[in-house]
C-alpha cells in the first residue's frame, strides 16, 4: 500500500499529465468558439458560427461522408475475410496461428510512405489500376485494420475453447456451419464490435495513405483538414474539435463494450 506523500505525488503526476494533454485541446476548443482571438489574453467574444459554417460546408460534409464510406468499406471487407480466416486457423490449423501473427505485423514493418510508393507503382497502371479511387484505400485500410481485428478476435476465441464447443455442437446434431453460426459467432460478437470501433477510430484519422494514394480525387476528412490549413484558424479548430468528438464517441462506445465483457 502506498504512503500518503507517495499517493499525493502519483496523483499530481497523473493530473499534470492530464492537464498537459487537455490544455491544447481546451485552447483549440476555445479558439473554435471565439469570434476573434489575437492580441488579447481571452477571446474577444464567443460564437458558434465556425461550427455552423463547418457543418453547412458541402466540401466538408462530402469529405466526412467519404471518410466514413472508406472506413466502413475497409472494415466490412476485414470482417468478411478475417472471421472465416480465424475460424479456419483456430479450428482446423491451429499451428498456422504463429505464421499469422507474423503476417499481420507486416503492414507495420514497412513505413506508410514507402508502402504508398509501392502501392502507387503496383496499382498505378495495368489491369489493377485503381490509384485515385476509393478502392485502393479500402484495400490498404483493410491491411491496417487486420492486426487489430485479428488479435482482438483471437483473444476472444482463445477464451471460449473453440474445439470443445464445436465438438459438443457436432455431437448435439449441428453441422459445422450451424455450430459456427449459432455457437462460435455469437461469442465473438463483443471482440468483433470492439475491434471494429477501435479500428474505425484509427482509420478515420489516417492521413498518409489517403493523401498519397488518392489525394483530392477522393477527399477524406484528414486530406480536407490538410487542404484547409491555410483557411481561418477558427474554422480549422472547429473541424479538429468536431473530428475529436466523433472519434472520442467511438472510442468511448468501444471501451464500454469492452468493460461489459467481464
Amino acid at each position: 500500500m502506498s504512503t500518503k506523500p507517495a499517493a499525493l505525488y502519483h496523483r499530481i503526476v497523473v493530473w499534470a499529465l492530464f492537464a498537459m494533454l487537455l490544455l491544447p485541446l481546451l485552447g483549440t476548443f476555445l479558439y473554435s468558439i471565439s469570434t476573434s482571438w489575437s492580441a488579447t489574453v481571452l477571446p474577444d467574444g464567443l460564437t458558434l458560427k465556425w461550427y455552423i459554417q463547418l457543418w453547412t460546408e458541402p466540401r466538408f460534409l462530402n469529405a466526412f461522408l467519404q471518410s466514413i464510406l472508406v472506413c466502413v468499406g475497409a472494415l466490412l471487407l476485414a470482417t468478411v475475410l478475417i472471421l472465416p480466416l480465424l475460424f479456419v486457423v483456430h479450428y482446423h490449423f491451429p499451428k498456422l496461428d504463429g505464421l499469422m501473427n507474423v503476417l499481420i505485423l507486416l503492414p507495420f514493418a514497412v513505413p506508410p510512405v514507402v508502402s504508398s510508393v509501392g502501392l502507387l507503382q503496383l496499382y498505378g497502371s495495368g489491369p489493377l489500376a485503381m490509384t485515385g479511387t476509393p478502392w485502393i484505400l479500402v484495400g490498404c485500410y483493410f491491411t491496417i485494420a487486420l492486426p487489430f481485428m485479428y488479435r482482438a478476435i483471437t483473444n476472444n476465441l482463445l477464451a471460449i475453447n473453440i474445439r470443445d464447443l464445436m465438438d459438443a455442437a457436432h455431437l448435439l446434431g449441428a453441422s459445422t456451419w450451424k455450430a459456427a453460426l449459432l455457437v462460435i459467432l455469437p461469442n465473438l460478437r463483443k471482440g468483433l464490435v470492439v475491434s471494429l470501433l477501435l479500428s474505425f477510430s484509427f482509420l478515420f484519422a489516417e492521413f498518409v495513405f489517403a493523401n498519397l494514394l488518392v489525394g483530392t480525387r477522393y477527399e477524406t476528412l484528414q486530406v480536407y483538414l490538410n487542404n484547409m490549413r491555410n483557411s481561418s484558424g477558427h474554422f480549422s479548430s472547429a473541424l479538429v474539435i468536431s473530428y475529436f468528438f466523433f472519434v472520442l464517441m467511438f472510442t468511448w462506445i468501444a471501451n464500454r463494450l469492452n468493460r461489459d465483457r467481464g
Binding site: 471460449i160 475453447n161 470443445d164 459438443a168 455469437p186 461469442n187
Partner: peptide
C-alpha cells in the same frame, strides 16, 4: 467434456 463445453452465449 472435462471443460464442460457449455455454450457461453
Amino acid at each position: 467434456f472435462q471443460s464442460y463445453a457449455l455454450f457461453p452465449n
